[in-house]
Write a protein that binds this DNA or RNA. Sequence first.
DNA 1: CTTTTATTTAGATATATATCTAAATAGAAG
DNA 2: CTTCTATTTAGATATATATCTAAATAAAAG
Lengths: 192, 192
Amino acid sequence: MSQDQFETLLRFFKVLGNESRLKILGLLANDERSVGELAVLLDLREPTISHHLAAMKELGLVDVRAEGNNRIYWLNSQFLEGMSKDMFSQSNLATLVDDEETSTAWEDKVLRVYMDGNRIKQIPSKRKKERVILQWLADQFEMDRQYYELDLNEIIKQFHPDAAYWRRALVVEQFMARDNHNMYWRLPQSDV
Amino acid sequence: MSQDQFETLLRFFKVLGNESRLKILGLLANDERSVGELAVLLDLREPTISHHLAAMKELGLVDVRAEGNNRIYWLNSQFLEGMSKDMFSQSNLATLVDDEETSTAWEDKVLRVYMDGNRIKQIPSKRKKERVILQWLADQFEMDRQYYELDLNEIIKQFHPDAAYWRRALVVEQFMARDNHNMYWRLPQSDV
DNA sequence: CTTTTATTTAGATATATATCTAAATAGAAG
DNA sequence: CTTCTATTTAGATATATATCTAAATAAAAG
């Protein structure tokens, strides 16, 4: 769903999310009406009705014709049908927000909070957050390369004093693997 | 459609007619989320998100469960389906407003504007309005009774000096009938 | 052509509400 | 039991918007 469609849907809800306009919709569903008639029926001034009708017209919800001095408004029922059809299917809603744009925001914040430049300020108590730090930490090592445990520790110590903790965490959370000769290497991330 | 249903529909539109809440809806359509996650994704403070989620929860649009300190919100997709199904059919919308309640408002206003107590202040130039006054005028005469033209004129003169004008109008607009002996009587109104 | 009527436009005001900060609450971790 | 973390509640503020009055417009009626 495009940004444009999002805006349209939002405006649709905004327009109908008003008592007076929703009543107007109900009245026009019964019969076409002039501005003055609607003003009397809703007990509001003509400019107010005019203002509401303009918003509904802009959206395409109603149409107008002139009859002498009167302007007769009626419902564009096609529009409503098109709007309701499958606007609300899960798959349609799922694309309402562009997840590409926002998906790294959470991780970025975790990094900002727990990192100070290249130093890990603190070990997150939540696994989910820790995994964000672990991903960053793993990225400090080259892919397709073997590291001795001693070298691994040295590198980690640049970022945080408790190298043993992070070394084990990297393995437990499967960012890295080790063989029985104390050699370590990065594992590809499955992304889920 | 009951008043209660109107309120529900109105709240539905109000809740979704907000940029932040519509985005939340889109995000939850993809996956369940905690308050904090949503706050980061939308770049808003937790209390703001909490406030929006409360509104969505109240409506029945989302559900929550606690996971430790986190509150995980997810979409009640059944609710959406039920909402969209035939909520927008013309016949459903047509009952949004109670027309019984409002149908006499227009006539009442015309009477207020053109009448001063029992005096007709002015002859409306529009036929539609004139018919409202004529209905009132006809109601000043008894049903199933014959009036001489002279008596008719006398009665009308209590309300407006131009009795001849109103006498003719009553006949033309078929609120009353006359025979060829200058006798007048009321006609039943067909209501359409 | 002047007046009346219906509507729209412009501008002012009041109400609603989206958002924030600060404080309260409640569960988790140590 | 104390501290930390996520969330909610309370209250303040700023923005959005619903409504009104007054003035402008345009068609109809006289």
